[in-house]
Write a protein that binds this DNA or RNA. Structure first.
Lengths: 196, 196
DNA sequence: TCTATTGTCTAGCGATGCTAGGGTCGAGTC
DNA sequence: GACTCGACCCTAGCATCGCTAGACAATAGA
């Protein structure tokens, strides 16, 4: 009857449950903030007890890391879409990417926090950096590298521009910068980085 | 005998102990990171029991906030010193301020975290913002405002430049950016913001 | 000297992340 | 079809966290 071996069925069920855990963590973080994401609540949401979580992840950090990887993939998509949809010269392109980045940070704070504010135990800027993280930076590089201008180092340019975006996103959301001038700040940044 | 009224002596002793708490929190955070700063350890360091802490502060958040205010004052001093000691035109001045800012963030991570990464319950960019915070931003504004160039809004310029510095400091220290290029990134940023 | 206030500590509450140990259920074997 | 064994999962608990209630001691004023 069963064309699927028992072992294979188990494996799939396990993988599905793992996705369920990550999805539950993400949704809980999006709705009530990361401080509401506890192992007990998470276990309750997925209909299992706490120890089950540790059969999939080494601990809460790794769960955050898994959500962060989802965030990286989505961020890469958002950036590529913005770059592809931008009309005009490099300035418009950079501006579109900047707005997309800041829009992602403001619109998906849980994902952004998992990526950049919380400790997900992920390696950055190294050889063993997970693929989605590399790809997100690659997306930034694609979208911005061409606008580096005279500088011979698009990677360096991208890093600095990215840092500026990250600073704007972080400080704005933490209430360190008045939100009403967000648009003007973005324009000033883009202007400075695309001059000449 | 006692020229000092009893009440006054008590008041001073209390104030001194409050400073002791903040100093203990800061030192503990600097030596072992903020995750090691617990109310129990703090109480042990100052030679009192936990509830004493709550006679001075509403909770751990307020203690972090007190350390953050110290950090803001020191940051303001560092920035002003850098601006005052910089020789040459606006570009050198801005460069010196940028290096000073990043040096502070890298050299006093506990203070920087208390200011910008942890929740110290402080109000930013508002009417009731504590003095030291306003002053730190004022120091940035003094040092950078003149370099805003043609833009008629030095405050906006300062905000964006500050955000870029914050992004560089945060991403570098979190391992998101390779540390060896820190100097080149700083130069690129200064160059972009002082062009023309 | 007695009283009342002020100050401090012990003990404990509800949570957190994480884990040890036992029990149940099902797959594979005679 | 009964049995064994291993994978799976849950109950219960540990250490630690921020914070607080209530008892106790020290001290200032009458």
């Amino acid at each position: 009857m069963s064309v699927m071996p028992v072992q294979e069925r188990k494996r799939r069920k396990r993988a599905q449950r793992e996705r369920l855990i990550v999805a539950a963590a993400r949704e809980l973080a999006e709705r009530q903030g990361w401080e509401a994401v506890t192992t007990r609540r998470l276990a309750e949401r997925i209909g299992y007890s706490q120890p089950v979580l540790y059969g999939h992840f080494r601990g809460k950090r790794e769960i955050i890391g898994a959500v962060a990887l989802e965030g990286a993939a989505e961020l890469a998509g958002v950036l590529r879409a913005a770059a592809a949809g931008a009309a005009g010269g490099p300035r418009e392109r950079v501006g579109a990417v900047a707005r997309a980045y800041l829009g992602f940070a403001a619109g998906s704070p849980a994902l952004y926090d998992a990526l950049f504010h919380l400790d997900g135990g992920l390696a950055f800027a190294r050889e063993d950096t997970p693929g989605p993280l590399k790809d997100a930076f690659a997306a930034l590089l694609e979208s911005l590298g061409a606008a580096a201008g005279d500088g011979p180092h698009p990677a360096l340019f991208t890093e600095v521009f990215w840092a500026a975006l990250h600073g704007l996103a972080t400080l704005t959301r933490a209430g360190r910068l008045p939100p009403e001038d967000a648009g003007r700040r973005t324009r000033l940044l883009v202007e400075r980085f695309t001059a000449l």
